[in-house]
Nucleic acid binder design. Sequence first.
DNA 1: CGAGCGTTTGAACAGCGTCAAAACAAGTGG
DNA 2: CCACTTGTTTTGACGCTGTTCAAACGCTCG
Lengths: 217, 217
Amino acid sequence: MSVDQTAVRSNPTQGKLIVVAPGLAVPGFTLRFEANDEIFVEDEPAEFIHKVVFGAVRTTHLLSDGHRQIGGFHLPGDVFGLEYGKNHRFSAEAIVPCEVAFVARRALERIAERDGDAARQLWALTSRELANLQDHMLTLGRRNAAERVGAFLLKLSRHAASATVELPMSRGDIGDHLGLTLETVSRTLGQFARDKVIALPSARRVVLRDTTALAAA
Amino acid sequence: MSVDQTAVRSNPTQGKLIVVAPGLAVPGFTLRFEANDEIFVEDEPAEFIHKVVFGAVRTTHLLSDGHRQIGGFHLPGDVFGLEYGKNHRFSAEAIVPCEVAFVARRALERIAERDGDAARQLWALTSRELANLQDHMLTLGRRNAAERVGAFLLKLSRHAASATVELPMSRGDIGDHLGLTLETVSRTLGQFARDKVIALPSARRVVLRDTTALAAA
DNA sequence: CGAGCGTTTGAACAGCGTCAAAACAAGTGG
DNA sequence: CCACTTGTTTTGACGCTGTTCAAACGCTCG
């Protein structure tokens, strides 16, 4: 995907100042995406780093056997697509209609060369991502379905700072993130609801009732 | 663990120049550890970063339910224990008798403040670790026992640049790394040997015979 | 109102975990 | 040099959890 093409069809906003990290605002622009649009593609040169303005984004990796691993979900305020190497290691797709900020990597690197503080912020972003992934590895390593889904809901709830959580992603997306099938995700949520650990006013809305039970699950 | 205590009992070598990354040599020292010695402990302040001189190290994380996740194995030349945050997020233990280099983080940070190239090297190290973990996540996500063990053997073989691989770690260590039980690891290796995909001259030595089959497994 | 996708639910199956015991290797002390 | 101990690896039998395949259900949006 070339950004110029996207720009034409998506009516971009140019010349914005994007806050990549606290105290690191860099010129960039924003684009709109519809659900399931590709924002960038695996193995493509990583020209930009991104930040979700509104909406929700998933980063995905397609395996040779057709299976899909979702590396993570990105919600408003989250930075994604920051690479050290030349190319992207995952693809990124809009889950719902989104606005996504673009900051040119070269611009960022030019700033980091002169400004040690900016360079440290980039390192911090990569490091935070590493820490998130380490936590996720613990989930994937040795937890059963209930523990995985419970931890997932708690994380979303913490991010939203609310007991009510909107799920922009499908059961299949959640499954591909947690290493479960969509059926198992659905069954686990159903069981939580029957046990009054959560309420499910609709398929895409969860109210956490007993966070202790979710953590222990 | 305080380093002074360790120094006393382990006869340290002081004042060495440790090559943390290509073109980044920093004063430090080395210590010896016996099998199962702790090198650093989770949640402890991360005062040093480390490099394996010889031997093998595992980084571990203990879960509340008693399960253990092994984040990774570190062989001669590998850097480990590099944190951005204040504390270590994993523990590190010697698997076999080891020599491990210590470089004070403060010394490293002082260099990075003045030298943008050094700062970038630290970012590169964290980023490489992130890439490794992303690969590992794919393994833990949706692969069966044979695929996991196969990928693990291939990775060791690539690192050693040899079809014959020494396994310093136990079946249990491998299992806690791959999200399997030690019995499943043992059975999978046994099946590979029966299928002539590998040879097992001894429990801790593997000869890769059919790498294609291992990758496809 | 109907079409299409996402979700739920069911039933049968399989892979891996659990528990248990035996085989094996390596080190220790007699 | 052998008997004994201790820890690791292998092997077996069984059960459970999650997958697979299939069908019904219910939103949402033409």
